[in-house]
Design a binder for these strands. Structure first.
Ligand SMILES: [Mn+2]
Ligand SMILES: [Mn+2]
Ligand SMILES: [Zn+2]
Ligand SMILES: [Zn+2]
Lengths: 138, 138
DNA sequence: TTCAAAATTATAATCATTACAAATATAAAA
DNA sequence: TTTTATATTTGTAATGATTATAATTTTGAA
């Protein structure tokens, strides 16, 4: 469901990010589009609402959101960076045919390899590639 | 141990890749450097042996190796593509401090999420990020 | 209202990758 | 061996995503 303006404000304020108009709109966009959009998708869609929006602002905002751990970067494909508002651990499946990225639940914490006992781990990622059902049965 | 010239030739021939001088040298480099080198590392190091080598050839060769499933691409960081001659499934740990990428064993096949029952999966990737022991205790 | 700091914008710079055409090497045919 | 067609390599230009920079605008406190 659509997050309220106050929810968005609060989310930024508690992370010490000044809630400018652009930042609120970008956060709102990410929450309404948990489908892992690219910078271009965010920019093109929001430009309809904010005609003066600059792509620099989208980049700047996403960087500050990342530093505040408000979004995660997904780099499955080289030269196709995507952003995910869902920050808790989950896996991704990318369809090579339609390009869609699906979420799936996965217990990544069970995977703590013994070989990495001396390592400090603060980020775990899992992604699969293949063909999604929509593309398979079409 | 160093693969023989015949081993390298054979590896290419069985995959229907014509064993040119450059291709053999690039394959040899990948086998002797399983540390996930970048295009630049491969190019700079091999240029000492082959002064006429072109970066285009490195790109072309890596692409044909990928299509023949002789190497795997590793895209942990955006704008830092790395290549792995070890193609069987294993996990990667990238140290944010020194940049090194470590291999670790992981049973990725155990992770077949039920949500993905209708999906055709042909590639599974796991990578962690953090700080390696060398950097931690220094 | 004034003013300094922060954010946004437009533009240029950077850099990895890809595209392309010319030069070279390879291997089969004559 | 020489000829010839094809594949590969090379150098250079084009592309495209991201970053850097400086000017403009917005914000919020004094
Ligand atoms: Mn996701
Ligand atoms: Mn590896
Ligand atoms: Zn699909
Ligand atoms: Zn390290």
């Amino acid at each position: 469901m659509k997050p309220s303006f106050e929810d968005l404000m609060h989310e930024l304020v508690i992370r010490k990010i000044r809630p400018s108009h652009q930042r609120i709109k970008i956060l709102e966009y990410l929450m309404e589009h948990p489908c892992h959009p690219t910078v271009d998708q965010i920019f093109n869609d929001l430009q309809k609402e904010i005609p003066t929006l600059s792509k620099s602002t989208v980049y700047n905002t996403l960087t500050s959101f990342m530093e505040a751990q408000l979004v995660r970067v997904i780099t499955i494909e080289e030269n196709e960076t995507r952003y995910d508002i869902i920050t808790h651990n989950h896996g991704h499946f990318k369809c090579d045919s339609c390009g869609a990225i699906y979420d799936f639940k996965i217990n990544i914490d069970d995977f703590t390899a013994g070989e990495l006992s001396g390592f400090q781990i603060y980020d775990k990622n899992v992604y699969f590639k293949g063909i999604c059902p929509k593309c398979l049965y079409k």
